[in-house]
Simulated assay, not measured.
Amino acid sequence: MRIRIAAVGLIVGAVALAGCMLPQHEATPAPASAAPEKAEPEAADPSPSKAVQVGGEAEDDVKVTGCSVDGGTGWPAAKLLITNHTERTFNYMVQVEFVDASGTRIGTGAAAENNLASGQKARATAQGFVKASGKITCKVTDVQRYSL
């Protein structure tokens, strides 16, 4: 009986965590102080200029500042600079792929930063766990920007 209860608790916890990690999109309700007739056209206007004003694409918030193979472990690592260009606090989940000199993908890594305030910067490392050698390149493949 205890095993069944523990398994159910584990499943419920995993579902709750997955729900929290789903990306939240930039479209949020207008503040209570905003006039409804003004807030609706802004939220409905998908023009690129509006996207840039609220922070643009999440990928624009992440820059690879270093890419190397650790001499001790042989694992690839990407040094990242994450800058929150939006007007809200967000959490970030960044995925990186590591590619060898021949163009072959040798692995992936991930990095996360939580509660990054508007305009705030953070340094993070996306770590791979597959042995690599020689010159590699690091490419950001996905950025999820979400709030809780």
Rank of each mutant, 00 (worst) to 15 (best):
L80I: 04
A30R: 08
P76I: 03
G56F: 00
A44P: 02
A14P: 03
K38S: 13
G107C: 06
A18H: 08
A43F: 07
A51D: 11
F90G: 00
M21W: 07
A39C: 13
A58G: 02
V54T: 03
C67A: 06
A18T: 07
G56A: 05
V52R: 08
L80F: 03
D61C: 05
L81Y: 01
G66I: 02
L80M: 10
V99N: 03
A58M: 04
D60E: 14
R88V: 11
E37K: 14
M93N: 12
A34H: 12
E40L: 14
P48M: 08
M21P: 00
V54L: 03
V96Y: 00
D70I: 05
T86L: 01
T89E: 06
S68L: 09
V64W: 06
Q53I: 10
A58F: 00
G74E: 10
L22I: 13
E57V: 07
L22N: 11
A27V: 11
A78H: 02
K63N: 11
C67V: 03
E26L: 02
E40K: 15
W75T: 07
G74A: 14
T65D: 07
L17Q: 08
V52P: 01
A35K: 10
N84F: 02
A30P: 06
E26K: 04
S47M: 04
A30D: 08
Y92E: 00
T108K: 10
T65H: 04
G72P: 02
H85M: 10
A77H: 03
V15I: 15
P76D: 04
R88F: 05
A30N: 06
V15W: 08
T108E: 08
I106K: 01
S102A: 15
K63H: 09
A32I: 11
V96I: 08
C67L: 07
V62H: 00
S49E: 15
P29I: 09
L81P: 00
S68E: 14
K38C: 11
G107M: 04
T73F: 09
G71Y: 06
A18I: 11
W75P: 01
V52D: 09
I106R: 01
T73Q: 09
V99W: 01
D100W: 05
E42N: 10
P48E: 08
V15G: 06
I82L: 13
G55N: 01
P76V: 04
A77T: 07
A58R: 00
A30H: 06
Q24P: 02
V64A: 05
V99Q: 03
A77P: 01
G74C: 14
P36T: 11
T86Y: 00
G72N: 15
A34T: 14
L17F: 10
V99D: 02
G107L: 06
M93K: 12
A51Q: 08
E59N: 09
P76L: 03
E57H: 10
G66Q: 11
A35D: 13
T104N: 12
A32L: 13
K38L: 15
S47W: 05
P29R: 12
S49G: 11
S47R: 15
K50E: 12
V94I: 15
P46C: 06
T89L: 03
S33N: 14
G56D: 03
A18G: 13
K79W: 04
